[in-house]
Amino acid sequence: MSSLVAFVAGGYLVPLALVAIALVSAATGGVARRLASVSLLLTLPIAVSVVLVSALTRAGTEVLVVLGPFDVTREGVDFAGQMLVRLFAISTAIGLFSLTTDPRAFVFDLERRGLSPRFAFVAAATVEAVPAMVTRAGVIAAAQRSRGLDTEGSLRARLRGVLPLVGPVILSSLTEVEERSLALEVRAFGRPGVRHLLWWPPDTAVERVARWLIVAALLVLVAVRLAGAWPPIP
């Protein structure tokens, strides 16, 4: 939800506030450090390309610096900045959700709301994937550091290390997803039709009210955005 808000509300203030809310909630849940690393891991590859592309190529009226054939304009930097804060708002929101949500409760709840178990599982697998990815990234970083990869040195040295870290994370995630989906298939996960569940997730009144408030907030924001009361998204 917070991801949608970040997109609807442009500028810096709202997305940054969302990042702050996510981090504060994570801190109360004791997962702030893990959230920070997850969100960096999720955002960094996209962020680097967005910043380069928009800062270097976006046309604008006020040129700040000239880098070889590229004019870095104020508009480009501004756009890159806004994109960056939004990306972080989204990744912290997704990260927080996956680090704090019981996947079992999530799946069964989606199923109770009429989603097919298969879809619910895909959603849960996404939720599960994030903490698993953090662990896997830890092992991969250890393996590459053992091969002399410098993750403690200069920024340049660290940037050079992105591919050896991100590559195996993605490749090994893919293998694992494949194995996991085969293992589930064997246990008839893809079977259509009703299941008789052994367990229902609890749902308190406070949680229900909070959910409706969040939806209402989103609707208000969309309305404000449509009414043109906020500065346009560049």
Binding site: A143, R145, S146, R147, G148, L149, T151, S172
Partner: peptide, 18 residues
């Protein structure tokens, strides 16, 4: 670690993690 790597080569169990 980057310096110690020149002295100690550690091969991990799972090749797909590297």
């Amino acid at each position: 670690v980057a310096c110690l790597a020149a002295l100690v080569g550690l091969a991990f169990q799972d090749p797909d993690k590297q």
